[in-house]
């Protein structure tokens, strides 16, 4: 018994010393001290010994167990230390290898601008709303104070639907402005609303012209609304797009659904003394707007004697082009991944 225990101790310590890694050591441990291990087997033999022999053998078995445990512990510490050292030495590791591929996607640049602005105006208490893209002539033109014989209605400017009755013609909306009246009809005054969306023109395509593009309409109707409020809203919008305050100026512009009508120019965000974008003038024309024409308020069922309002229209496609330096609008609707990939979400 004594001999077998001593042999077990000797062989065990040797096996521990030979274990080269944590897994091997674990195996050795199970073999020596596990439930079905060598020491357990020896301990079972204790029962067969006489009462006089038993205490000494038990003591020895205990000593062997402790010796083995100590050896295992030391060996484990040595292995851990070696592994740590090896890890820290970093042998054969090339830290310049590329990162693992992750799914990459992107948001369309026009949509990115639109959503940012929706959030911005939402935070200022504006409703985000929209209307149909196939619009009635009444909503697209009549309600917006655009005279019946206005050239914009003609087929070289507007895309008309086929086979609609003369008094109920349908067109692809040429601007987001019909949402002014639609939103007022739905919510009444007072109202703050922005309406982003797709608009259409009968237009031959080139680098700066598209028949399909995106706009965002803004409208505020309340008591006591005046030009300063409009200017503030427009400035906020530009701040949202360009990430900083831009110097702006208002000048006359003509649109039938506003009076007075304006064009808002901003100091060119790309230069100090003139560049290609601003054609050397340091001003770029950014968005039209104006006080809502009383006829439009009336069409929407709002009393222009009580309420006044302002509206503005932003070319989302154009803003995205300016912001990202896109020089050809035709990329926008191309679906070309070489374009879309450049706008990570």
């Amino acid at each position: 018994m004594r001999n077998r225990l001593e042999a077990l101790c000797r062989d065990g310590i040797a096996a521990v010393a030979e274990a080269q890694n944590a897994d091997a050591l674990q195996e050795v441990e199970v073999h020596l001290l596990g439930r079905n291990g060598a020491l357990t087997a020896q301990l079972k033999g204790l029962g067969k010994l006489s009462a006089e022999e038993r205490p000494a053998a038990g003591k020895l078995a205990n000593e062997v167990k402790q010796a083995l445990q100590k050896a295992l512990e030391d060996r484990r510490a040595a292995i851990d230390k070696a592994e740590l050292e090896e890890d820290l030495a970093g042998n054969g590791i090339d830290p310049t290898l590329p990162g693992s591929p992750m799914p990459v996607g992107g948001v369309h640049p026009v949509m990115a601008v639109a959503r940012e602005l929706e959030d911005l105006f939402s935070s200022m208490g504006y409703v985000v709303w929209d209307g149909p893209e196939i619009e009635t002539e009444a909503h697209n033109f009549d309600d917006l104070n655009i005279p019946g014989d206005h050239p914009a209605r003609e087929s070289h400017d507007t895309i008309w639907m086929e086979d609609t009755p003369e008094d109920g013609r349908l067109c692809l909306r040429t601007h987001t402005s019909p949402v002014q009246v639609r939103a007022l009809q739905k919510f009444g005054a007072p109202l703050r609303v922005v309406a982003p969306g797709r608009v259409f023109r009968q237009e031959a395509q080139d680098a700066t012209h598209e028949h399909t593009f995106h706009q965002m309409e803004g409208l505020v109707v309340d008591k006591g609304i005046g030009v300063p409020h409009m200017l503030h809203a427009m400035n906020s919008m530009l701040e949202g797009i360009f990430g900083r305050k831009l110097e702006t100026r208002l000048r006359p512009g003509f649109f039938p659904f506003v009076e007075p009508g304006f064009e808002l120019d901003a100091r060119c965000p790309f230069c100090k003394s003139g560049c290609k974008v601003c054609k050397g003038s340091t001003w770029i024309e950014l968005m039209p707007g104006g006080l809502v024409h009383p006829n439009v308020l009336r069409a929407a069922g709002v009393d222009p004697e009580v309420y006044s309002g302002f509206a503005f229209g932003l070319g989302l496609s154009r803003m995205a082009m300016l912001r990202y330096g896109i020089h050809d609008i035709r990329w926008m609707m191309s679906g070309d991944l070489r374009f879309l990939e450049q706008f990570p979400a």
Partner: peptide, 17 residues
């Protein structure tokens, strides 16, 4: 769309009506 873009590597596009 944000989920498609962020989790599934989709690119949002715009195409003609």
């Amino acid at each position: 769309v944000q989920r498609l873009v962020n989790s599934h590597g989709a690119f949002e596009t715009q195409s003609y009506s």
